[in-house]
Write a protein that binds this DNA or RNA. Sequence first.
RNA 1: GCCGAAGUGGUGGAAUGGUAGACACGAGGGACUUAAAAUCCCUUGCCCAUUGCGGGCGUGUGGGUUCAAGUCCCACCUUCGGUACCA
Length: 945
Amino acid sequence: MEYNYREIEAKWQKNWKEQQIYKTEIDHSKPKYYVLDMFPYPSGAGLHVGHPLGYIASDIFSRYKRQKGFNVLHPMGYDAFGLPAEQYAIQTGQHPAITTEKNVNRYREQLDKIGFSYDWSREFRTCDPDYYKWTQWTFIQLFNSYYCNKANQARPIDELIKAFNVSGTEGLDVAQTNPMTFTAEEWKAMGEKEQQEVLMNYRLAYLADTWVNWCAGLGTVLANDEVVNGLSVRGGFPVERKLMRQWILRVSAYAERLLSGLEKVDWTDSLKDIQRNWIGRSEGAAVWFPLATENQLDWKKLYMGGNVEGVQSESSFEIFTTRPDTIFGVTFMVLCPEHEMIPAITTPEQKAEVEAYITWAKNRSERERQAEVKKVSGVFTGAYAINPITEERIPIWVSDYVLSDYGTGAIMAVPAHDSRDFAFARHFNLPIRQVVAPFPDDLSDPDTWTESMDSKTGYCVNSGFISGMTVKEGGKAMIEKIKTMGIGYGTVNYRLRDAIFSRQRYWGEPFPIYYKDGMPYPIPVEELPVRLPEIDEFKPTETGEPPLARAKEWTYKGYPMEYNTMPGFAGSSGYYLRYMDPHNDQEYFSKESNEYWRNVDLYVGGAEHATGHLIYSRFWNKFLFDIGLSCEEEPFKRLINQGMIQGRTNFVYRIVGTNKYVSLGLKDQYDVTPIRVDVNIVRNDVLDTEAFKKWMPDFADAEFILEDGQYICGWEVEKMSKSKYNVQNPDDLVEKYGADTLRMYEMFLGPIEMAKPWDTNGIEGVFRFIKKFWRLFHDKDYNWCVSEEEPTREEYKILHKTIKKIEEDNEKFSFNTAVSAFMICTNELGDAKCNKRKILEPLCILMSAYAPHVTEELWALLGHDDSIVKATFPSFDESYLQETDFTYPVSFNGKMRVKLSFPVNYTQKEIEPILLANADVQKWLDGKQPKKIIVVPKRIINIVF
RNA sequence: GCCGAAGUGGUGGAAUGGUAGACACGAGGGACUUAAAAUCCCUUGCCCAUUGCGGGCGUGUGGGUUCAAGUCCCACCUUCGGUACCA
């Protein structure tokens, strides 16, 4: 029979499904291996050829690991809550559950056609109540926990309450929103509401007024990673800053562990770097700068001598600096426009100006603010602070270059050595004082500078007791000093923010929260899940409340329930754990399943999740680890980023003012406009002109100027998108070439982690290869023809060379070179006319991870009843590769000139005389004496002369 | 600006410091065929020579280390990705 991919693929896909061949159970007799693809959001557009790239790679690896004797968990499901389905619901009134169901079915259909080895019995969707029950459950655990910095883990909030009852905040070191101090007596004296408010300062899931990214276009708040350049990632609507009461996850409590945990995982350095930058650890010092009163002497009297309490009084500002060594260079202070002390300190004369500035700053969109980063703006408050080290009066300014949510929202400005402070000082004519120099005596006049001086290395100058020290020593000495003075301490700051967890939307997990007396309380876990209620419309209410406010009887025991829903990352932060035990209705997942499957051994997905999903899920997992649920602290041991598949757009060239199109090679003779053309009517850059005329009405009367009878299109690499007409759909390619060809071609394209343009041009080559492979098993009339004869040594060599190569390439995810190894092997066996079972059978197993359908068919034809999925990976035998002779390339001064064969066991001494006696060698030596002869056994000979 | 990745034929790409361009695509030539498809064979980095042999140059640029550099080191250029007032 000729190779009929349609018949073969349909047959085996059906068979695998019926036999449940990919169903996985706990099996303590085998080592486990967990291979996971990043959770897909099923969009309405379906899959394009870029999506399966990672899925194919992980599928190959899963199949390979199975054949290597591992019990492989390879599940798939859907991140099904999300904005697009809801936007669609708002426009059309169709329930997002219906849209989602439709999209999921389409995804499944597309995935099935490619022949993946997923255990579909474990599938679930984040919008299934059986699943989101556990998302809600985890939220309640977060709500009922705080973070103890001493134990360095999450602890039950009850322990904190006990501590408050015994000794107040005394001796506690815990993660908190605002620093708080109170005694046990003060705590006990509080009412319930007040106590609940205090606890909010410590809970890992807490409610707080916070500046959020408000997206009016979507009617919701967005996380930092959902906003790019001041626009929403979904939809591209403008985003503004707004103060809102929101649920927040205290991710920042885990900053240090999220950072140090990176040491333990096998991810690419670039991905780890992205996370490190995002977490943004910086060491420095917190210092209090007191507000200057009329008379500076008063301040000295009050605060010198380590009066900590006094300095922390209302009339001082806490600043954070990474450079305490530059404190002698402080010439002013800057507060962020949101700083709460501004109204209190602003002098009457400056009041109007300051208020105007703050109003202006608040009303600016994020986009405007970011676009005008280089523009200096600010206003003087009229107030002064005291530099506690120099005791100088310094002016206090307000500017939006200081951010409210990093550090303390207040800075000490050192214009000489900070570019932003420098620009600000120049703009407002503030003094600039040099306090760091490349060498202790190498001073210059800051008035002559055009930019701030780099100060990461060098020596402290003009700096009192630290003058002459290196900046590093100076920093240390200064921290000691401020500690003894009681005005500050060494500390660490993180750029990583707490994650805003409320969305003013319908299509997400409802919070298991009701409100009593304005304070939130969790619904008892026995009553979970809290199901998403039906509502009549998916829009906010007339009064601007989130859609859930439309639900009838959205109450718990008469108390109102939370109107917000959870964000996209809620459901995707712990999904990999649920796959271990997906249908458990008693617990998130059983201890037994967790202790067997533990964590993900191989995670495949895009690097775009580096600052979102991969942070949140590590946080989520660490929390579950702390409360004893997850037995591994890091969820994803090894991670491979597949590179983005870019589109390859084709262009036609219209002569300006006409409906005439000129072929690529001739276009420079005319004045032309390039126009994108659908890649599906172009083959190898040759345009199907008839299809083009039918493509759009505008082109019906198109005329063409051809070259050699063809219309050649131009091309460019761009993002793959519908609007660029460069989207290729895997279904079409499966239809035309079969899934096995598509799978191998996607791998053949290049290294998995590299971004590369999708170009269908090469797919024919892979298709030809599979047909050639098929012919190895058949005679020229396509009759089955496999011989039982013993293979020759040469044939065994071809096989074992391939086994070695495939095994190595599989282990290092070098799937493109593996495909070419299969091609080489097939070419060589074809040349040798080898149709022997002992060669072809192991070869089928090697290739079954890449092309599961055709190899399964051949495996059955070879007489096997059991699936090739369960076959054992062939073992490599070195002895077949051993040779008696090696053909050395002989180089002269590094240039390869001749080849000479020597027995492999010959030493340099044995080789040299024969080498020098050779006529070709003598010719190249041209009568000169060789100075040196280098023989690298089984590699190369180099003659230096 | 900062961080990261990458620059090799017409194209995708290959190469533990050891024969640069494997394997494919495309292109050209040929075989089979009434024809097409399919299949098979040959050529294909550039330049010179071509009657045969052959020779020169080549991995973004410039230096360096080495018997030997696409690969290691230094400086620079370009492209792509991430991030950006983070004190």
